Amino acid sequence: MHTYPVREIYTIISAGRPTEVGLRGYPAVQTIIAAGADDQRGDDVLHRVFGDAVRGLEQLRRST
């Protein structure tokens, strides 16, 4: 949630998986980097917050 309108939309996929910017949005990722909160960038945290969406196409291919 933002206290100001965010006009940019980032839908970024790399190697069939969404990137951090694609999942969280550019302003959130910039804040995490600026704060040095590297623990928030790990796969385990991303999976707990976003579930199977983190695996992207890789997950879809395994389930079919």
Rank of each mutant, 00 (worst) to 15 (best):
V54A: 02
G51T: 11
R48L: 14
T11Q: 14
G25C: 00
E20R: 15
S63E: 11
V45M: 04
I33A: 07
D39P: 00
S63M: 05
V29S: 00
S14F: 06
A15Y: 10
A35I: 03
L60T: 06
R24G: 02
L57G: 13
F50C: 07
Q30D: 06
H47F: 13
R48W: 08
A28E: 14
R62S: 07
V45W: 10
V29A: 01
H47V: 08
F50R: 07
V6Q: 14
R17D: 00
A28F: 03
A28P: 02
I33V: 13
R55K: 12
T31V: 04
E58A: 11
M1E: 09
I32Q: 04
G36W: 07
R48K: 15
H2F: 12
P27Q: 04
A34W: 02
P18C: 07
P5R: 15
R61Y: 12
G51R: 10
A28W: 00
R48M: 10
Q30Y: 01
G22W: 11
G16Y: 09
R55T: 02
V6M: 11
T3E: 12
S14L: 08
Y4A: 10
V54W: 05
I32F: 01
G25A: 04
L23H: 06
V45A: 07
I33N: 05
Q40H: 00
E58M: 04
T31P: 00
A37V: 00
E58W: 07
H2W: 11
T31S: 14
S63Y: 02
R24V: 03
G42T: 15
L23F: 05
M1N: 08
P27M: 04
A28L: 08
E58R: 10
A35F: 00
D43K: 14
I32Y: 04
V54I: 09
T11V: 15
P18N: 09
L60I: 07
L23A: 05
D52T: 02
Y4R: 08
A53Y: 01
L60M: 09
E58Q: 07
G56Y: 04
T11P: 02
V6A: 09
